[in-house]
Simulated assay, not measured.
Amino acid sequence: MPYLTQLAKVARRTGCPVTEVAGWKTRGHGPLQEVDGVVCHHTAGWNDMHVVRDGRPGLDGPLSQIWLRRDGRIFIVAAGRCWHNAPSLSLGHTNSRSIGIEAENDGRTPWPKVQLDAYKRLCAELCREFGLPVSTVKGHKEVNASKPDPHSINMNNFRRDVAALLRGEPAAPADDLSWTEKLVKDLPLLRPGDDNWDVKTARGLLNARGYLPEAVYAAAGLKEWLDRTGYDDEFVKLIKGFQKLKKLDSDGLVGPLTWAALARVS
């Protein structure tokens, strides 16, 4: 497959502002073999397009074909292969077979709506251009076991919105709920006497990881347990860690009934 010199035209179909970084059409570590998927990242910094273009100590640039600024402007950085995902858990998302999008974010700051909208529109147009099913749009954290990005984005919901855009429908509007409100919304309501309510709680914690900041997990002592696939053996530790999380509920938005139920099974 030749260098992807159509990327700027594809990006402009999103309706978002686009900047072509000088030299992008010939920039890359050789051509891609195929385009089988898209990998979504955050940069872990600010104003760092130059890092995506030029690389960093120990890793030469380009590191991704696209850099997405926080204001929703799309920068086309490279047309060839980029070092954005290795080792990959998916054969369709290796550096030789996927397009990388590096979105400007320090890994903690909430995503601006304009940037998230551009992210989804860009993924939709890449799927359209290369005939990709939406299922091939993956977060870095889904195809590389050591990565957390893109932070706080539930990729299932993200793909749902990309699919809606491909159907010509508007993506679901981003909500303004705090992380504690989202937790209450998604965590099953627990009542004394419910069967398997401990399993429900653990499942809710695992699901919540899709949007709670990594920093919250680290502060609450939950990250180690949530990174594991099983929750039966780790359940008591999960709940004890969750009690620490209560201290972070400075807004008081998690209802007392929820905390009482969690305390009962700890």
Rank of each mutant, 00 (worst) to 15 (best):
L89K: 12
P110N: 11
Q65T: 03
P112A: 15
R228N: 08
E20M: 06
G15Q: 11
K113P: 11
V265T: 13
D36S: 09
S266A: 15
P188Y: 12
G30S: 00
V35M: 02
A22T: 04
Q6S: 13
K141D: 09
K200L: 07
A118Y: 10
A171N: 05
L222K: 04
L177Q: 12
D117S: 12
R73F: 12
T5A: 03
R70F: 15
W179Y: 06
V162I: 15
R121F: 04
G72H: 13
V265Y: 12
A22Y: 02
V265G: 04
K138S: 11
K237E: 12
K240Y: 02
D186L: 08
P57F: 00
G92Q: 08
V184I: 09
E125K: 11
E234V: 14
R56Y: 06
S266M: 09
R167I: 05
F158Q: 06
C127K: 06
A260H: 10
E129F: 04
E104V: 13
L253V: 10
D54L: 02
A79L: 08
G92W: 01
A118N: 12
P256Q: 00
A220G: 07
R160H: 13
L238Y: 05
C40H: 01
Q115D: 11
L245R: 01
K120C: 03
A78F: 01
Y217P: 00
R191Y: 08
K120L: 05
K240L: 04
R203M: 02
V18K: 03
I66L: 11
P110A: 12
D161W: 10
S152A: 14
V52F: 03
V10H: 02
G168M: 09
W259N: 05
V216D: 02
P150N: 07
R69E: 15
K237C: 05
G107T: 12
P110K: 13
F130R: 00
D149C: 13
V143C: 03
P213C: 09
D149Q: 11
C123F: 07
G58S: 11
G210F: 03
G131Q: 06
L122Q: 05
F130V: 00
L4P: 01
G131N: 10
G37C: 08
R128V: 09
D60I: 11
